[in-house]
Design a protein around this nucleic acid. Sequence first.
DNA 1: ATAATTCGCAACCCTACGGTTGCACGTACG
DNA 2: CGTACGTGCAACCGTAGGGTTGCGAATTAT
Lengths: 114, 114
Amino acid sequence: MRAPAHRQVDSVFGALADPTRRRLVETLARGGTVTASGLAEQLPITRQAVSKHLSALRGADLVTSTRVGRETHYVLRPQPLDEAAQWIQMVGAEWDDRLGALRRSVEGRGTASR
Amino acid sequence: MRAPAHRQVDSVFGALADPTRRRLVETLARGGTVTASGLAEQLPITRQAVSKHLSALRGADLVTSTRVGRETHYVLRPQPLDEAAQWIQMVGAEWDDRLGALRRSVEGRGTASR
DNA sequence: ATAATTCGCAACCCTACGGTTGCACGTACG
DNA sequence: CGTACGTGCAACCGTAGGGTTGCGAATTAT
């Protein structure tokens, strides 16, 4: 359980930075409409924009595209999400360690926010 | 334990999108140099750029600045990180639910990636 | 065969963003 | 004192990124 490959973490956080993209991920997780233009109908933007966002998500391996007839279906791939969660958890753990060391050496200061 | 306020999640993911910013967060979590220019020495960029990044992190409540004499110290505030982690976990849970429902209705298809 | 969908690609705006440089202000030190 | 250090603020530059529009290609329907 070591540090996740920064490469993937990079692309995942980059993909998740955009609110629209996160909304798409949410919808896909909820099992909503899986076609590009279907997703566009639920949003105030063009089908093209959605398509671009889906490309970005696919670039981060967060989504898989599958062509069915003349429409392409998109499926969520949550594994990269775990990667990001691991990064967060790792940072949190290091912080806790450091905080523990501080408390050990100083003792006091009731504000234990986390 | 409901969905985190999208406002905060937005700013957090936005802040975490940049690799340099994540490096700063890592360093702060590790308890490294806490002054702006001290952090800049460990990076191939200007002190100003680091300062800007720290401002961004403070905008996402990921960091707290405290002036000590003529230098300002920066401290990590991991609570927003938990917010982001919760979002990821929520999406993952919904996906698992949806996947479970699928498997319940169809039965088969051995590829249970997650 | 023709018309209607649904998509991908490319070009094009415009804004946001990471980065630098320059300067002015407060603080420490000789 | 004056000088050196550490910040913050503002202006500026270049690129990446979200969004739109306008095609052409493939698939389904009439």
